[in-house]
Amino acid sequence: MNPPNPPPNIQAELARERNRAAAERTLMAWIRTSLSLIGFGFGIDRIVSAIRGFHQATEISPVQLSRILGLAYISLGVYALIVASLEHYQELRRIQQQGDYFYRPRRSLSLTVAIALISIGIFAFIGILIRAFA
């Protein structure tokens, strides 16, 4: 006669399901943030190009600040979405694996994106300041 299987730890199983749902929400938050970044990057570039095309006689921005900023925004959005997708995949693998679960300290994507956004903001601030008042 085989010994009966140990009953599953229901609290831990429910906690795993909560973690999976939390991971889904995190990925969705990053999709929204990346969409905003890409949308803004594309939007700024297009709007300024349209205004410039409407009035071609004058040169508005010799360094094309808006284009550089637009590209930086789009790049940051794509980077954030790729890293968030990879992290989500790894988290799902960890939740599904058998055995004990351990919290894994790792580099924070949101901190990286926040620092990058602060850098882009400072760059934009200095660029506009020089152009407007120099």
Binding site: R32, T33, I60, L109, V113, G121
Partner: peptide, 27 residues
Amino acid sequence: ERTVASWIGSSLLLIGFGISFEEISAA
């Protein structure tokens, strides 16, 4: 992470508004 992502959205809105406003105003 989601909280910071939400703050990034707000901050992005402000920075994007600032850049757009200045560019459109100058144009």
